[in-house]
Structure formats: C-alpha cells, structure tokens
C-alpha cells in the first residue's frame, strides 16, 4: 500500500508537472508578447513572434522524447554495431562477420522468414473470412467480439494459455492438454509438440495468429462495410455468384486496407520475442531475431555490439514498410 501511495503521488506530480509546463510556458509567452490588447503595430509584431514560438512550445516535449527514445538510439545502434561488447573499443566489421557466420543467426533468420510468411497471411486470411461471414449473420457482433478478445491478452498470458493446450503427459496418464487429448481420442500417439523441430515454430505462430486475427477482422470488416452496395447489387444483376462477388468485386475494392493490415502485422511479427521466450526459451530450433538480440544484450553480461547488429537487421527489414508508410502519409497530406 505504501508503494501504491508513493506511486500515486509520483504519478500526480508527473502529470501535474506536464500540465504545468504547458500552462506555464504559454502563460509566459502571452505575458511577454501580449496579443489581446494594445497598439495595432505592436500587437501585430508580438503576434508574429508568438506564432513562431508557440508551435515549438506545443511540440517541445514530444520532439525531445522522440529524439531521445527513438531517433538517437537508431543512430547510436548503428555506431555500436562497429564496437565491441562494452561499446568502447572499435572493432570494425567483426560483429557483422560474426553475425553472418553464426549458425544461430541463420536459424533465427529462417524462423523469422517463416513467421513473416505464415502469420500475416494466416491472420489476414482468417480475418477476411470471418469479417465476411459475420456480416451476414445476426449474432455476428457477438462472434466478432469473442474472436477479437485475444487482442487484449498479453503475449505471455497467451503463451500460458497455449502451453496448457500443448501440454504433454508421459505414460498412461490422462492427457490434460487439449491437443494431445484430441490426438489420443482419435487414436494417435501423444506428442511433445514444442520439441518437434521446424514444426514447433508453427505451434508458436498459431498463438500470434490467434491474437492478431481479431485485429485483421475488425479493420477488414469496416472496409467491407465501406464498399458501396451498388457495386455488389450491380454484380448480382450481372449474374455473379457469391464467391465471384467476393473475389472479383469485394476483395479488389479493399485491397488497400488488406495491405495496411498485412504490413501492420508484419511489423508486429518482427518485434515478437515474448512468445518464444515464454514458450520454448528459444530451444529446439525456435530462435527468432528479436529474442536473439535480447539474449545477446543481457546473457553473460551482455554484448552491446552483437546485440546492436541484430537490432540493425530487424531495422533493415522494417525500412521498406517505413518508406511505403511515409509515402502514403505524404499523399494523404497533399490530398487535404
């Protein structure tokens, strides 16, 4: 409770400090350059000055935070990738050499590629199918809500949930993991699912697909509802059947949204490490880049240089999406 009280006080102080900054700085600006009364010439000059300064008062904290937490670290990571474990001695390209000759890197890179192919595809596909079908039934909203729910569950929480499903009991004991129970019910042999090479990756991916399908569904459902009824009615009059309407009329019209969903999930996949850490701790060939980076950062005292190199690989994978996003945003701004 003592901690809660301290936290409460710190929290109020933090929030008030924030508010005080915005109030105080704007108050000062208005005091130094009054614009609400006075001679026209002076007001005009003050206004110009105030209008030049004020945006930066508004933006100041955000720009500082973004610089310190995101912009500077990117540059610093690039620098560190040329330095040794403590980040002090220059080692040239040796971190890169190490990376490209390390088996673990190829393993995690291969796994990451598998994740990148499977998860966005599966989540978008299921999302689209569910969105289409739930729009047609009266209890669609309840169904959507339930499928959307895993979105609120942490990756670690989801890992516990699924680890329970993949649970394995030796010998003749009753299987309490759902998957093995089903296998036994249909006459199969129970398996330790998480240790089967290659395939265990897919069992981990299932978790992320389970979480992200709801996201894809919600957005695609909104996009589907945005399709003008007339185009579908016209297709019906032209004699198209349900599947033709879906593939030839509806999907092409929401292509842009599908791309957005796809890229959003792709970025998420690149950053995923919690699931691997919690499910297998990267054993049995399930390593991914984000988790490998995390290991190098902390395990055995940490190696900042090697960690930074792996982070850079993730960054490079993200850059095409980043460029595409910025271009899209610019087009949008010009449209306004």
């Amino acid at each position: 409770m003592g901690q809660l009280a301290t936290a409460l006080v710190t929290m109020i102080l933090g929030v008030m400090g924030c508010a005080a900054y915005f109030y105080g700085s704007n108050f000062l600006l208005d005091k130094i350059f009054p614009t609400k009364s006075g001679a026209a010439k002076e007001v005009a000059r003050n206004l110009r000055v105030a209008n030049t300064i004020r945006p930066w008062l508004f933006l100041g904290p955000a720009v500082l935070l973004l610089t310190f937490y995101l912009f500077y670290p990117v540059l610093e990571s690039i620098r560190l990738s040329f330095y040794g474990r403590s980040g002090e001695e220059f080692v040239g390209l040796s971190n890169y050499k190490w990376l490209f000759s390390s088996d673990e890197f190829y393993e995690s890179f291969r796994n990451n590629m598998l994740w990148l192919i499977v998860v966005p595809t599966a989540a978008t596909f299921f999302g689209l199918i569910i969105a289409t079908m739930t729009d047609r039934i009266w209890w669609g909203n309840i169904a959507k809500s339930l499928i959307f729910m895993p979105m609120a569950i942490s990756f670690v929480g989801a890992s516990v949930i699924w680890k329970f499903i993949y649970d394995f009991r030796t010998g003749g004991e009753d299987q309490i993991g759902l998957l093995n129970a089903l296998v036994v019910f249909f006459g199969g042999e129970p398996q330790t699912w998480l240790t089967i090479p290659i395939w265990n990756n897919f069992f981990l991916m299932v978790i992320l697909v389970w979480i992200q399908t709801g996201f894809a569904m919600v957005i695609l459902s909104a996009a589907l509802r945005g399709i003008p009824d007339e185009t579908i009615e016209a297709a019906v009059l032209d004699g198209a059947n349900g599947f033709q309407i879906f593939y030839k009329i509806m999907v092409p019209q929401i292509w842009g949204t599908i791309a957005v969903v796809w890229t959003t999930i792709t970025i998420l996949v690149l950053k995923v490490f919690d699931i691997v850490l919690a499910m297998t701790n990267a054993q049995w060939g399930t390593q991914v880049l984000a988790n490998q980076m995390f290991s190098w950062m902390f395990n055995g005292g940490g190696d900042f240089g090697r960690g930074a190199v792996i982070a850079l690989v993730i960054m490079v994978l993200v850059i095409p999406i980043m460029v595409w996003n910025i271009r899209r945003a610019n087009e949008e701004m010009e449209g306004r």
Binding site: T35, K36, S37, A40, K41, V43, A44, L47
Partner: peptide, 11 residues
Amino acid sequence: GEVVNDVPPAL
C-alpha cells in the same frame, strides 16, 4: 481608416 493587414482577427 486603420490599416489592419497584420492585426489578428479578434482585434
């Protein structure tokens, strides 16, 4: 009779 090019709207 006063030039208001630079005067803010409110004034």
